[in-house]
Simulated assay, not measured.
Amino acid sequence: MLRTPSGGAGSGAAAADSGPMSIGTVLNVLREEFPEVTISKIRFLESEGLIEPERSPSGYRKFSAGDVERLAQVLRMQRDHYLPLRVIREHLDAVERGEAAPLPALSRQRSGEPVPELSEERTAARIGRAELLAAAEIGEQDLQEWESYGLLAPLEDGLYDAEAVTVASLVAQLGRFGIEPRHLRVMKAAADREAGLVEQVVAPLKRHRNPQTRILAETRSRELAGLTVKLHAALVQTALGVRLP
């Protein structure tokens, strides 16, 4: 079972009894507790040495239940204690060695550790077409159809934002209920409008000469994106008269 650093039970416990998981499956497990986590975030944490998932013969990541639990611990310590990744890594490594390692009382604002440039995470946020197909467990024909409706699109370099796996997985799940890609164009249009609103708010920060201010713009974008997602979900639930579990 996933547990917090203090020993409390966390979400996603079902992952503990599963076999090797794809990065898309890991994302779905973690989002029960961390709705704003993305595949790019998972890949970035791997690049920083926080996890070391196994690789299949074809090179795809295979996450164990232990990897998912460690990811959850990292995300909690970032969220609840504002610890830098270096401190989190050292703490978890010490715990795994069986050493007495109390959780450091350190905040990001006081740590003195430089904030990583945005490009570090974005570099790890690109996946190829074959990796997208494998992670989302879809076929080439499905992807072509979804692209024709604008639900997915490659970037200028031909790669995809890693969040495309989430989109593809959700489109596939909705399809099992008879909701076709053409029905989802209204959702895509609404998402584009919401993104435009967020961009208007953070645009002055993005244009600032100070690199720290530009990093703040990215943080603010994520915060606003999380709020808009929650609001959208609440509005849909209200309209349908249901409550999600």
Rank of each mutant, 00 (worst) to 15 (best):
M1P: 10
S6E: 13
G7Q: 02
G10C: 05
S11M: 03
G12H: 00
G12V: 00
A14D: 00
A15D: 00
S18P: 00
P20T: 03
G24L: 06
T25K: 10
V26T: 02
L27F: 02
R31H: 02
E36C: 05
V37T: 12
V37S: 06
T38F: 02
S40R: 13
K41P: 00
I42V: 15
R43Q: 14
E46P: 01
I51D: 02
E52T: 15
R55C: 02
G59E: 11
F63D: 04
G66H: 10
V68M: 00
L71P: 00
A72V: 00
R76I: 07
M77T: 03
M77C: 09
R79M: 12
L83Q: 09
P84K: 05
L92W: 04
E96W: 08
E99R: 08
P102K: 03
P104D: 14
P104L: 04
P104M: 08
R108L: 12
S111P: 04
V115R: 06
L118M: 08
S119V: 13
I127A: 03
L132R: 02
A135Y: 05
A136M: 06
E137M: 10
I138T: 13
L143V: 04
Q144L: 12
Q144G: 09
W146D: 02
S148F: 10
S148T: 12
L151E: 05
Y160I: 08
Y160P: 05
A162K: 05
V165C: 01
T166A: 12
T166K: 07
A168H: 09
A168F: 07
A168D: 08
S169F: 04
V171E: 06
R176K: 14
P181N: 14
P181H: 11
P181V: 13
R182T: 09
H183W: 11
L184T: 07
L184E: 11
R185S: 13
V186F: 13
A191T: 15
D192K: 15
D192M: 07
D192S: 15
R193N: 12
E194Q: 14
E194H: 12
A195H: 15
V198Y: 10
E199W: 03
Q200A: 14
V201S: 03
A203R: 15
R207W: 04
H208D: 15
H208I: 11
H208F: 08
P211V: 07
R214D: 13
L216D: 13
R220H: 15
S221G: 08
A225Q: 13
L227H: 10
L231G: 08
A234H: 13
A234W: 11
A239K: 08
A239V: 05
V242Y: 07
R243G: 09
R243P: 00
R243K: 06
